[in-house]
Amino acid sequence: MTSSATSSAFEAVGLARSYRLEGVSVDALRGVDLRIEPGEFVAIVGPSGSGKSTLMHLLGCLDRPTSGSLRVNGVDVSTLSDTRLAELRNQAIGFVFQSFHLLARTSALDNVALPLVYRGMPRAERRRRAHQALESVGLGNRLGHRPSQMSGGEQQRVAIARALVGDPRVVLADEPTGNLDTRNGAEVMAILDRLNAERGVGIVLVTHDSEVAAHARRQIHVRDGLIEYDSGTADGATGRDEGRTGPVEAG
């Protein structure tokens, strides 16, 4: 992997993805051009069915585009085998899901250490790093707890620790506050803010909640498989500013 500091975290050109559902082709994403730099805090906003989840799956290398190209850290993912793609996910990307996706019968510590298992890292080292990651989300006292013994907010913080443990350049968060009450949601967003500000970890947030999206410095609105609005990077380089008229509240 030739990831260099200068290449964009994500660089999509004409990115499209269609599915065949019972013989009918459905275009979920219809040609998206997008560049996200390392360390950016981006919110992808759109109603359900807009294609924002598809976009996130493509950015997260969980799925392959039907057409168009995507570079992750400067690497064209279409050239990668499934195995290399898995390695790329493991090394470069952290995931946070709406429904946490923690292993139910596994302790917080082992849940967080899971990505490192697939790096072939020795157990002691894995546990040391997982411990650190849990400390950084304020759960240093919950190492042996299982998901069922923790609140939703705590579970999502465990998931964030898991996303961080492998030192990814970017964390993809899919509705990270969707299953949380306001207080826990705010706590989770505060952690994401802090990660971005203090550690320079890039955050790509998928949400339909404008309040959550407001945490990001850049807003991208997706509708009907296309980017409808992009507020541009923090330094205002990207154009196409049609004003903030997007259906932020929709969905």
């Binding site: 969980l62 195995t83 898995a86 292993l103």
Partner: peptide, 16 residues
């Protein structure tokens, strides 16, 4: 299935 999906997202290869 969800566990498998998660493991793959976290970097498990097909052979893992």
């Amino acid at each position: 299935t969800r566990e498998i999906g998660l493991r793959k997202a976290l970097g498990a290869r097909q052979r893992d």
